[in-house]
């Protein structure tokens, strides 16, 4: 269950901006670019044991996790869901908003009560296209995120390939 974060009054742009500025994803971001992110942001709390989002739903949000633990899971064929990665306070989640009409490929399940800043993907995409400097900066941050996740996925793949050898 996702609710607004009572610790951070909605509409308090300064508080949201400060929370974003302290997040590693936004490290070194220009002040006016921070303001753009804050303009499209909300702060939420996701209860432990509930879903941040479900596989197949439109991937239209960037999540900046502030506190808590979120498991990215694949549920297959009635078997217990398999956790492929856990994300924690300080991690960013979701880049599909950069491209319109993408679905989430995983379930995101809050293992513990999770606080996050959510940024509206459609509006963020519009801002990225409207301002080339902001767009480039944000695209580079997202690319770094994707590159890290790709590395992790490759190592994960190698680990499972080499299962029958020494690992």
């Amino acid at each position: 269950m996702t609710t607004t974060d009572p610790a951070l009054p909605q509409g308090d742009l300064d508080a949201v901006r400060t929370t974003i500025a302290q997040h590693p994803f936004a490290a070194g971001l220009a002040v006016d670019h921070l303001a753009v992110l804050a303009e499209h942001a909300a702060t939420v709390v996701v209860a432990a044991g509930t879903f941040v989002f479900r596989q197949g739903a439109p991937a239209d949000t960037l999540y900046l996790l502030v506190e808590g633990d979120v498991d990215l899971e694949v549920a297959g064929g009635g078997a217990e869901p398999l956790v492929l990665e856990s994300l924690h306070g300080g991690d960013a989640l979701g880049w599909s908003w950069l491209f319109p009409t993408q679905p989430w490929l995983f379930d995101a399940h809050a293992r513990s009560a999770t606080r996050a800043v959510t940024i509206d993907g459609d509006r963020l995409r519009a801002a990225v296209h409207a301002d080339a400097v902001f767009g480039r900066d944000l695209a580079c941050r997202v690319a770094a995120l994707v590159s890290d996740r790709l590395r992790h996925a490759r190592l994960q793949l190698v680990d499972s390939w080499t299962h029958d050898r020494r690992a």
């Binding site: 498991d71 899971e73 217990e80 869901p81 398999l82 956790v83 492929l84 990665e85 856990s86 924690h88 300080g90 399940h109 293992r111 590395r151 992790h152 190592l155 994960q156 680990d159 499972s160």
Partner: peptide, 21 residues
């Protein structure tokens, strides 16, 4: 661990994810 089923209370991710943290 690289992957787990629900109920594992530790981190999930390859060992290199720990290095920046």
């Amino acid at each position: 661990v690289d992957s787990a089923v629900r109920g594992w209370s530790g981190r999930v991710g390859v060992v290199t994810t720990l290095i920046p943290r």
